[in-house]
Amino acid sequence: MVNDEAMPYDDLTDTEFEEFCFELMKELGFVNVDWRKGTGLNASPADNGRDVVAERHITDIDGAVHVERWFVDCKKYTKGVPPEKIMGLLAWAGAERANVALVIASSFLSNPCKEYLKSYELNNRPPFRVKYWERPQLGKLLEGRDAFVSRYVDSRPRTEAEIVAAEEYRTDKLWYYRKQLLYHFVEIGQRPPLTSQEDKLIKDSMRFMEERHADDNGFLIEGDDHEAWNVAYLLGELSALRWVLGDDWNNGDS
């Protein structure tokens, strides 16, 4: 798979990506694989620095078998994973004597994160190996595993939580676009100026949306020749998602 090619896990939520990593470890031959999600929350505080714990049995040339214990931290990021997000994994790998600390990133580790790992290994000489699988490595690992991808990802029905999350995201996107359009109409004189109170309220809400979706390069609808098509497509998606959730057709409110 090419680095910028769409991956089968791209549309998964954080929790679903953890489950994908859990299933992938089993697919790769690891045993006693334990997904440590302790709550129903999207980001669980109960994993103690690792999302998955797995064992790998290794047979020596003389037939002796020894077991490696892997601690796995799964990071579903559209941007590079920052160093502070993998510190918990390293701390618990040392405290509980893991053999390998593995970060599985849906995209890439940031350069500061990679530099931090180099410095950590050089200065601390941990008793465990530090590994990370980024998008290219995951692409290689999935090559020839079409049955796994089809079984786990392609054929997986959408959960209600996933549908709700998709509807909320598109509602946010449409709401933000309409506020941009509002300011455009004010600027060209097709709408009366906003009061100072209205202006502050809307801009505060827009800043909240920008922070909420800061990692998503596709959140903004760009003002190019495809703008109208993008909005119409977005309205179609939103209507379909709301219909599945029990609403009437063609509800484009935001």
Rank of each mutant, 00 (worst) to 15 (best):
D4E: 14
G80N: 07
Q180I: 13
R36T: 12
A43Q: 12
S110F: 02
E115T: 14
T159I: 03
Y120A: 04
L194M: 12
E19D: 08
F17W: 00
A165Q: 05
S107P: 04
E162Q: 09
V186N: 00
Q197Y: 06
P192Y: 14
K131N: 12
M209F: 11
D34Q: 06
T159V: 01
R36Y: 09
L234N: 00
S205W: 09
D247T: 05
K114R: 14
S106H: 13
H213E: 05
E23A: 09
M209A: 10
G236A: 08
L234H: 01
G139F: 06
E134V: 10
K140P: 08
Y152W: 15
L174D: 00
W70N: 03
V52C: 04
L138Q: 00
I58N: 11
D199W: 13
R69E: 06
K203F: 15
V149I: 14
N3H: 05
A105M: 10
Q197E: 08
K37Q: 05
N123P: 07
D73Y: 03
R56H: 15
P193Q: 01
S196F: 00
E168K: 10
A228Q: 02
Y77D: 15
S119W: 07
G189V: 00
E16I: 04
V31I: 11
R158Y: 00
F17T: 13
P45A: 12
L234F: 00
D248L: 00
M25S: 08
A46P: 07
D154N: 11
K179P: 03
D10T: 01
D73G: 13
A98S: 00
F20Q: 15
F20R: 01
L102Y: 02
E5L: 07
F208A: 03
F148N: 03
K75P: 01
V67W: 10
L122Y: 15
H66P: 10
S239G: 10
I163R: 05
E168V: 06
R145I: 15
R145H: 09
K76S: 15
R151Y: 12
R145T: 13
D51H: 09
I221E: 04
Y169G: 05
C113N: 00
N250Y: 06
G49I: 13
P127D: 07
F108I: 12
D199P: 10
I58S: 03
H184R: 03
N111D: 07
G246D: 13
F219V: 04
F17Y: 01
P82C: 02
L238E: 11
Y169P: 10
S254N: 11
Q197N: 12
Y233I: 05
T195W: 02
S44D: 07
H213M: 00
N123A: 10
I221L: 07
L194P: 12
R135W: 11
N217V: 10
F208K: 09
T15Y: 15
G139K: 08
D14P: 12
G189E: 00
W175Q: 07
P193F: 02
E68P: 15
R69C: 15
N251T: 07
C21R: 07
I221D: 00
L234R: 03
G252Y: 11
K179Q: 12
A43N: 13
D154Q: 13
Y152T: 11
E162T: 11
K79W: 02
W249A: 07
